[in-house]
Design a protein around this nucleic acid. Structure first.
Lengths: 205, 205
DNA sequence: CGGAAAGTAGACTGCTCAGTGTAGTTTATT
DNA sequence: AATAAACTACACTGAGCAGTCTACTTTCCG
């Protein structure tokens, strides 16, 4: 028998959580290189040795943090294609959902750190490519459905999907991640989404 | 060894050139943090003190290298808007020129390093935003001219220009810079340029 | 050609950091 | 209460790094 969700969490679990929390703050604020294990331990209110008792190395801690953040940024199910509704409205809904994620400060921090770490690590970069691919599949699925329904004219839904996302990310993702630009206001988001949808439909509808 | 115009270049100039060359290689290969002045000196076949006699600090050397690389990646004049020629042909020419730069390995390395450095330095990031803006003005100028000529329907040439570039960079720049993806083949470049032009003209022509 | 100015080599300082070893204290379980 | 597991303080190793010092060598110019 066991009791998992009891009010009194075991000390070791509390310590581990504190380490992870501190590591997230530190890594997101300063990146991998500029963050030291001493600082993480201090911030967590834990001895450095305890950090190493939970995670064998800085690399392992970083990987654990990255994985956890990635999981937590999953936003759940997507609206599926509907033959009954106008394309533009459906498209806008998908784009707004995408923009909401891209504008999330936590997501941007994660992207910044992941990219900074990946720029000089082939292995990490490869991992990111794969994960990103999955994450962006929803739009492709929608486009493929609309094309199968004869309402979009494209022979390459994947490519079209990348084009569509390009029109959003160029304003709401890359400038924020790579150049520290401020996130888009609600008005700007609407403008970007509508412009992207208009251009996309002008070409493929 | 080589003798270009003058057989005897002053020793100090040769040393300085060696330092700059080594610094470029090292910084481009490993980024700012992971590059040490000792390594640069060793690679240049020069004492560390010599490096410091030419450049007061690592920061200064890095800034000098970045500036020089930026200058050297300037590709000269652009084809101006012509009322007499078809829009699509002109647009494709501009896009091919852009793609040639984006696919340049040296330019990609520079971008990688600059972005990695900028991600954790507000000051550098701001500088990059400004430089990038200038560098990308040519497309905006062309679009504005075509709009003034009544052949493109847009009230915001700058925005339209960013959309157009988004359609190219999403395939030929961001994946290469941030995820170490291989550059585009000639066929892929043509496909990306034509698709971007088609979509752009479908919306604004 | 000779001496001052400029350049140079490499040891050295002082610092930060990842990771370990140890001896002792606190917490959980039975 | 006894025992095992986890945590802690902290000293320590070994490595790397930015930047400096000093004694020596090369270059330049009158």
């Amino acid at each position: 028998m066991m009791s998992t969700s009891e009010p009194t969490l075991r000390l070791t679990d509390r310590k581990r959580a504190a380490v992870i929390g501190a590591a997230i703050e530190e890594f997101l604020a300063a990146g991998f290189d500029a963050t030291s294990m001493d600082r993480i331990a201090a911030r967590a209110g834990v001895s450095k040795r305890t950090v190493y008792n939970h995670f064998p190395s800085k690399e392992a801690l970083f990987a654990a943090i990255l994985g956890q953040l990635w999981e937590s940024s999953d936003t759940g199910e997507v609206t599926a294609y509907s033959a009954a509704h106008p394309l533009r409205a459906q498209l806008l809904q998908l784009l707004f959902k995408k923009l909401a994620l891209l504008n999330n400060e936590a997501f941007l921090s994660l992207a910044r750190v992941a990219i900074a770490a990946g720029i000089h690590s082939q292995e990490r970069a490869r991992d990111m490519v794969a994960r990103m691919g999955e994450r962006e599949e929803d739009l492709t699925v929608w486009i493929r459905a609309a094309a199968a329904d004869g309402r979009l004219k494209t022979s390459d839904p994947m490519f079209a999907s990348q084009q569509l996302q390009a029109l959003v990310k160029a304003f709401a993702f890359w400038p924020q991640v790579t150049m520290g630009q401020p996130p888009l206001s609600a008005d700007e988001q609407r403008h970007v989404a509508e412009s992207a949808a208009d251009m996309f439909l002008a070409r493929y509808a």
